[in-house]
Design a protein around this nucleic acid. Structure first.
Ligand SMILES: Nc1nc2c(ncn2[C@H]2C[C@H](O)[C@@H](COP(=O)(O)OP(=O)(O)OP(=O)(O)O)O2)c(=O)[nH]1
Ligand SMILES: [Mg+2]
Ligand SMILES: [Mg+2]
Ligand SMILES: [Zn+2]
Length: 715
DNA sequence: GCCGTTTTCGGCCCGACTGTTTTCAGTCG
C-alpha cells in the first residue's frame, strides 16, 4: 500500500465527521474531527514523521484520540470507528450532505422514515409526495430539495483564483458605482489568495443596504437568487458559482471584513481567544462578555488590537499557527512583489511564447527586473515548437549579444528542459552545462505511478545541470490533481543538490501550492517564484506565485529570485563542480552555429523580431485565458486587458460555416493557425470561441478541450 | 475529541435566514 499523504488522512477524518454527523454523534466531537482534518491537511511535514518523532499530539487541535486513529490509518487506510460508521451509514447518504439546504438532520430523518439511501431515491420520494407527508416538511421544502438536487447535478467544482477574481472584480465594479456604497471589498478565500475558490464573497459598507442588494441581484451574471435578507444575499452565477453579498454599516466594516475573510477556523480560533480575554467578537465588532459594545471596529486592525494581536495578513488566516505566532510577535515577514529581483521562467517566440526575445527583455527592463532567464521548451514538446540542440545553441549566442546591449538587465540563457519518461533530460547535458540556468519539468508521460515518477524527477535533480524543478506536482487548481509523487523524497534530493523547486505563477498552475511552499521552507529548499510568462504582459503578473508563497509562510530569504543573480550563479557553479561531469567542461560548445546573419548583431536582432514559426503548439500552458469560456456573451462588452489583442477586429463570418469547417478532417493550415492563436490567448476570436462552445456542448466538453482535441488530431 | 489567564471537568464562535416553529430547529456563512 502506498504511503498515506496528509491530504488523504485529512479526507478520512472528514469522512468520519460526515458519517458521525448523519449518525447523530456529539457535535463537538464532530467539530473536533473536522478541525483535525483541516489541521493535518495543512501540516508542513508528513503526519507519519511527526508521529514517529512523538510530536504529532503536541500540534494544537490534535490529541491522543487523533494520534491513535492516525496510527491505524497509516497501517490500513482506515480506523476502527470509521469501519463501524461505514457499516452504519451508506456512502449515498454522505453524498446527500453536499446538496445545499440539506443537512445531517434531514438526511437522517428521511433515511429513518423512508429508507432512502441515494440522491436518486431522494428525488423520486420528493416527486412522489413522500417527503411532503413527513412531519416538519412542506411544499416549500420539497421544492428546495428538488432545486438542490438539480443544482448539485449541475455543480461546478472549484474555480482557479484568476477566474474568481475576474468575476468578482466585475461585480465590484458594478456595485461600486452606486452612491449608497461607502466601501466594498472582495473577501473570503479570494482575499486569502487560495488557488481554488469555492464561492465569491463580497462585503459592502453602506447605511442603505436595499439598493445595493437590488443591484447585486440584477447583475447580468446572476442566474438565480438563492436567498435574500436584510443584510445578506446569495446568488448563483451563470458559471454555477455562488456569490454571497454581505452589507453592514460603515462603522463596523473592519469587523465585517475580518469575519467575511475567514477562514472559518481562523475566526473560531480568534473568537475563542476573545472569550478567554472576557470579550466577544462578531461581525459587528468587539463586545464585553455581557454584550456591551466596546468598538464596532471600522478597520480590521481594530479587531486584532482589542485581542492584543498585530494585524495578520489574510493569506495566513488558516488556523495553521498564525494566531499563536502573532501572539508571540513571531509572524513571518512575508515575501512581497518588491522583493523579487528577477524572473526565472519564461517563453519566447522560439517555442510557444507570444513575445520575441527582445520584447520579453524590454518588458522586463520596464518592470525594473535586475535579471531574467529565458527558458523556452525543449524538443520533446514538438507541439510547443521546443528547441533542439542547434536551435538552443543559436539562441544562447543571440542572448549573449542582446545581453551585451543592456546595462540595466542581466539577460541569462536558460531552458525549460523536459524530463523524459526515464528521468533523462531531453537535451545533451554538455550543452545544458553551458547555459546559465536550467529548469527541468515534467510535461508528458504523467500517468506514471508514484515510484516511477519520483525516481524520474530525482534522476533529473541528480544530473547536476538542473537548477530548478518546474511546476513540480503538475496540478491544475480546480481542474486536475497533482500526479502521484513522493514530494518528501524530491525535497531531500533537492536539498542535497542545492536545487530549487519552482512555484509556478501561471494562474492555471500555481504549482507548488501553499502547503508545499511551506514544506520547502521547513526542509530548507529554495523556492523560485516564476511567472512562466508566455507573453510580455505576463511578466508583470507575479501575484499568483506570490499568493502561494505568502500562504506558505515564505520570507525573502526562502525565495531564490529574491536574491541577486550572483547568488544563483554561485549555486550553479558549485553544483556543476560537485555533481557535474568533468567531460562537460572539456567541450566548448556542442553545436557549430552556422555563420551568417545570426553572427551579426543587428541582423540577429532582426532575426529575433521575425515571428516566423510562431506559436504552433497546443500544450495548454500556464496562462491560457479562461475568462471567455465562462461568460461568452459578457466577454464582448468586457474591458479588454492591456496588451491583449483588443485591436483585432471581429471577423464577420458565419459561425455555422466555421463550425462545419472545424469538423472537417484534416483541418486546413490556416484554421490550425487560428486555433492555436486562440488557444495561446494571442488573439481574441469570439466567433471561433462560440463555434467551439457549440461543438463542446454536443460532446459535453469545454471549448478549450475541443480546441486541443482538434489540434492534436493528425494532419 | 480537545483543552485550560475560570476550569483536568465542563465547556466548545456567533449570527442571518428559512420554513410552519406558535417559541424554534436546521442550515449556512
Ligand atoms: N465565524 C464564522 N465564520 C464563518 C463560518 N463559515 C464561514 N465563515 C466566514 C469565513 C469564511 O471565509 C467566509 C466566507 O465563507 P465561505 O463559505 O465562502 O468560505 P471561503 O470563502 O473561506 O472558502 P470557499 O472558497 O468559498 O469555499 O465566511 C462559521 O461557521 N463561523
Ligand atoms: Mg467563499
Ligand atoms: Mg461564501
Ligand atoms: Zn512547463
Amino acid at each position: 500500500m502506498a504511503r498515506l499523504e496528509n491530504s488523504e488522512i485529512a479526507a478520512l477524518f472528514g469522512e468520519m465527521a460526515d458519517l458521525l454527523q448523519i449518525d447523530g454523534g456529539d457535535r463537538h466531537r464532530i467539530a473536533a474531527f473536522r478541525r483535525a482534518a483541516r489541521i493535518i491537511e495543512g501540516l508542513p511535514r508528513p503526519a507519519e514523521e511527526l508521529l514517529s518523532r512523538g510530536e504529532l499530539d503536541s500540534v494544537r487541535g490534535i490529541g491522543s484520540g487523533t494520534v491513535h486513529r492516525v496510527k491505524q490509518m497509516l497501517r490500513r487506510h482506515s480506523c476502527d470507528d470509521l469501519d463501524q460508521l461505514r457499516r452504519k451509514v451508506g456512502p449515498g447518504l454522505r453524498e446527500m450532505l453536499k446538496i445545499k439546504g440539506i443537512g445531517p438532520t434531514t438526511v437522517r430523518n428521511i433515511h429513518n422514515r423512508l429508507g432512502i439511501e441515494t440522491i436518486d431515491q431522494l428525488e423520486y420520494a420528493a416527486q412522489a409526495g413522500a417527503i411532503e407527508a413527513m412531519p416538519r416538511m412542506g411544499t416549500a421544502m420539497v421544492h428546495k430539495i428538488l432545486a438542490g438536487v438539480e443544482a448539485y447535478r449541475k455543480r461546478r467544482g472549484k474555480v482557479p483564483l484568476i477566474e474568481a477574481q475576474r468575476v468578482g472584480r466585475r461585480i465590484i465594479a458594478s456595485l461600486a458605482s452606486l452612491p449608497e456604497v461607502a466601501r466594498i471589498e472582495l473577501a473570503g478565500s479570494v482575499r486569502r489568495g487560495k488557488a481554488a475558490i469555492g464561492d465569491l464573497d463580497v462585503l459592502v459598507a453602506s447605511s442603505d443596504p436595499g439598493p445595493v442588494s437590488s443591484r447585486f441581484q440584477s447583475l447580468p451574471d446572476v442566474e438565480e437568487v438563492l436567498l435574500r435578507g436584510d443584510t445578506r444575499c446569495s446568488v448563483r452565477l451563470r458559471n454555477q458559482q455562488q456569490a454571497d453579498l454581505r452589507v453592514l454599516p460603515p462603522q463596523s466594516f473592519g469587523a465585517g471584513l475580518h469575519y467575511f475573510t475567514g477562514s472559518k477556523l481562523h475566526n473560531i480560533e480568534l473568537r475563542l481567544r476573545a472569550g478567554r480575554m472576557g470579550l466577544k467578537v462578531s461581525d459587528k465588532g468587539v463586545f464585553t462578555r455581557d454584550e456591551q459594545l466596546i468598538d464596532p471596529c471600522p478597520e480590521e486592525a481594530d479587531v486584532f488590537r482589542h485581542l492584543a494581536l498585530p494585524w495578520i495578513p489574510p493569506e495566513l488566516r488558516e488556523n495553521q499557527g498564525e494566531v499563536e505566532a502573532a501572539d508571540r510577535k513571531r509572524l513571518p515577514k512575508l515575501i512581497e512583489a518588491g522583493d523579487l529581483l528577477g524572473d526565472l521562467h519564461m517563453h519566447t517566440t522560439d517555442s510557444d511564447g507570444a513575445g520575441t526575445l527582445r520584447e520579453m527583455s524590454e518588458r522586463a527592463r520596464e518592470l525594473g527586473h535586475r535579471y531574467i532567464a529565458i527558458t523556452d521548451h525543449s524538443k520533446a514538446l514538438r507541439i510547443a515548437n521546443g528547441l533542439d540542440e542547434p536551435r538552443l545553441a543559436a539562441q544562447l549566442q543571440r542572448i549573449r549579444r542582446l545581453d551585451a546591449q543592456f546595462d540595466d538587465l542581466q539577460l541569462r540563457s536558460g531552458i525549460e528542459v523536459d524530463i523524459l519518461a526515464n528521468g533523462d533530460l531531453d537535451l545533451d547535458p554538455a550543452l545544458l552545462a553551458q547555459l546559465d540556468w536550467v529548469v527541468a519539468s515534467v510535461h508528458r508521460w504523467t500517468e506514471q505511478d508514484e515510484a516511477t515518477m519520483t525516481k524520474r524527477v530525482i534522476r533529473a535533480i541528480h544530473s547536476g545541470v538542473v537548477d530548478c524543478i518546474g511546476h513540480p506536482t503538475g496540478r491544475r487548481p480546480g481542474k486536475r490533481d497533482a500526479y502521484p509523487l513522493d514530494l518528501e523524497a524530491v525535497l531531500a534530493a533537492a536539498r542535497d543538490h542545492d536545487v530549487a523547486l519552482e512555484c509556478n505563477g501561471g494562474p492555471n498552475r500555481m504549482d507548488l501550492g501553499d502547503v508545499d511552499c511551506r514544506r520547502c521552507r521547513e526542509r530548507g529548499v529554495a523556492v523560485a517564484l516564476n511567472t512562466d510568462a508566455h507573453a510580455p504582459r505576463h511578466l508583470g503578473r507575479p501575484e499568483f506565485a506570490l499568493a502561494m508563497a505568502r500562504r506558505g509562510w515564505l520570507e525573502r530569504e526562502h525565495v531564490l529570485n529574491a536574491q541577486p543573480w550572483e547568488v544563483i550563479a554561485a549555486r550553479r557553479a558549485r553544483r556543476l563542480r560537485d555533481h557535474g561531469d568533468p567531460q562537460w567542461r572539456a567541450v566548448p560548445i556542442l553545436v557549430q552555429v552556422p555563420a551568417g546573419p545570426d553572427t551579426d548583431t543587428d541582423a540577429a536582432v532582426e532575426l529575433d523580431q521575425d515571428r516566423g514559426g510562431g506559436p504552433t503548439g497546443s500544450e495548454d500552458h500556464a496562462w491560457i485565458d479562461l475568462e471567455p469560456l465562462e461568460f461568452p456573451p459578457a466577454v464582448a462588452q468586457a474591458p479588454v486587458e492591456e496588451g491583449s489583442a483588443a485591436a483585432v477586429a471581429e471577423p464577420v463570418e458565419d459561425r455555422d460555416a466555421l463550425r462545419a469547417a472545424l469538423t472537417q478532417a484534416p483541418l486546413g493550415a490556416e484554421l490550425r493557425e487560428r486555433l492555436s492563436a486562440w488557444l495561446m490567448s494571442a488573439a481574441a476570436d469570439p466567433t471561433l470561441e462560440r463555434a467551439l462552445t457549440e461543438l463542446g456542448e454536443e460532446r459535453g466538453e469545454n471549448p478549450l478541450q475541443v480546441g486541443f482535441d482538434l489540434l492534436s488530431k493528425p494532419l
